[in-house]
């Protein structure tokens, strides 16, 4: 009796071992490359965004009368971008021909190096940004005199006995120093937090992949 296609289909697969899934070793290579490519793209976009922002802020700062802030921002961020671009060039040198595990390990080493360098930079970066804001607004023109001096003058009207150091209220200096110390102290942590906000998801996937491959190797 002639068999229907439904029967051929059912019986054919019942008898055979043809439905054994092929090995997917190479999948890990592809996934590693995919995740790291994604990270590279995000990292590049981030650097471009920093350059664009620092340039735009530089222009705006001249218009709003805080060019000191704009210039310091621009120089600091340019140095930051330069260092990270050099780090990115190192990342590009990682050999894609290595096994996925070696590739991921090499990336992980790069990531740790990048993290360590940027955490050190951040200890200076955030205080510099804060100082740039202070200087920018202090020297902003306010009807023929600096905004900072004008503010001190108004404070002295309300609090004539306030103690001044080089024409600046001591309490202001103390508060600024405390903020600077806190920023220097927490700079590395702020950077780490910032990094996690942007790349946390990618890093998590990479860690999962590493754990996966390690469990397969063991």
């Amino acid at each position: 009796m002639e068999r229907s296609i439904e029967n051929i289909w059912k019986e054919g697969f019942l008898k055979s071992d043809d439905l054994v899934a092929p090995k997917i070793n190479n999948l890990y290579n592809q996934k590693s490359i995919h995740i790291i490519d994604k990270f590279k793209r995000m990292f590049k976009i981030n650097l471009i965004a920093i350059v664009a922002f620092s340039f735009a802020f530089l222009v705006v700062s001249f218009f709003v009368g805080i060019p000191i802030t704009g210039v310091i921002f621009f120089v600091t961020l340019s140095v930051l971008v330069y260092i990270n671009k050099k780090l990115l060039n190192e990342l590009e040198k990682i050999d894609l021909g290595e096994s996925s595990y070696q590739y991921l390990k090499a990336f992980n080493q790069w990531k740790n190096k990048q993290l360590s360098i940027n955490m050190k930079i951040s200890r200076f970066f955030y205080p510099i940004i804060f100082l740039a804001m202070i200087f920018g607004f202090w020297f902003k023109d306010a009807e023929g005199m600096y905004l900072g001096e004008r503010l001190v003058g108004e404070i002295l009207v309300g609090f004539p006995e306030i103690y001044l150091v080089f024409g600046i209220p001591l309490i202001g200096i103390v508060i600024a120093i405390i903020i600077l110390v806190l920023l220097a102290f927490f700079g590395a942590r702020i950077y780490k937090w910032d990094l996690n906000v942007i790349y946390g998801n990618v890093f998590k996937k990479l860690e999962e992949l590493m754990t996966d491959i390690e469990s397969l190797r063991s």
């Binding site: 296609i5 289909w9 697969f13 008898k15 055979s16 043809d18």
Partner: peptide, 10 residues
């Protein structure tokens, strides 16, 4: 090919 000849034809 599959091990079942009819399935291969199908």
């Amino acid at each position: 090919a599959f091990s079942d000849e009819s399935l291969n034809l199908l």
